[in-house]
């Protein structure tokens, strides 16, 4: 078993729920590098991730999966390569309540295209039903248009069960 490779990366825009998702699934307190927002994001959130989130989970078969979350702000994009290096696959979280969430999904699929090609991705849409920015069908038809058939879930980042299902879906995709 290659311990180094058992690592999943959570990414997505500011406020998608990456830090929340990693903390809801992990049994131990995660490593968090959230600091107070000082710029424009202050209007939306109190804290934001500046380096990474880290935790791990143990699957029923005893396999340990390391979870890393990226910062969502564009200025930390140098962390993307650092964190995806040797990773198993990607969990992409999109906040449906952001303006143009479908465009954000496309942005991240493009930005991580090389990594996704080598590994795999599942997409989780958070905060569905709060605004009518997009429906699940909108994401699906965009994926169809791009000829990218990836598992897509509506999730609540605060729900351990929801996050768990996504991780298992990703592992299933990767083993095929």
């Amino acid at each position: 078993m290659n311990m180094v490779n058992d690592k999943i990366i959570f990414t997505g825009p500011v406020g998608a729920g990456k830090t929340t998702a990693i903390s809801s699934i992990s049994d131990t307190p995660p490593v968090s590098t959230d600091v107070a927002c000082s710029g424009e994001e202050r209007a939306i959130k109190d804290t934001t991730t500046v380096a990474m989130d880290y935790s791990y989970i143990e699957l029923d078969n005893g396999r340990r999966i390391h979870l890393y979350g990226t910062p969502g702000q564009q200025r930390f994009d140098f962390m993307w390569d650092v964190l995806t290096n040797n990773g198993l696959g990607l969990v992409l979280l999109i906040n449906n309540n952001n303006p143009d969430p479908v465009g954000q999904m496309e942005f991240y699929l493009d930005a991580f295209a090389d990594f996704i090609r080598k590994t795999g991705v599942v997409i989780g849409i958070t905060q569905v039903g709060i605004s009518d920015n997009a429906t699940l069908a909108d994401y699906q038809s965009k994926l169809m248009e791009r000829q990218q058939i990836y598992p897509l879930f509506e999730i609540d980042g605060r729900s351990k069960q929801d996050v768990r299902i996504m991780i298992h879906a990703l592992l299933a995709v990767l083993s095929t």
Partner: peptide
């Protein structure tokens, strides 16, 4: 560099 400094310092803090 500002982004990188804050990332390094935050991780080191931890």
């Amino acid at each position: 560099f500002s982004a990188m400094s804050s990332a390094l310092l935050a991780l080191s803090d931890n």
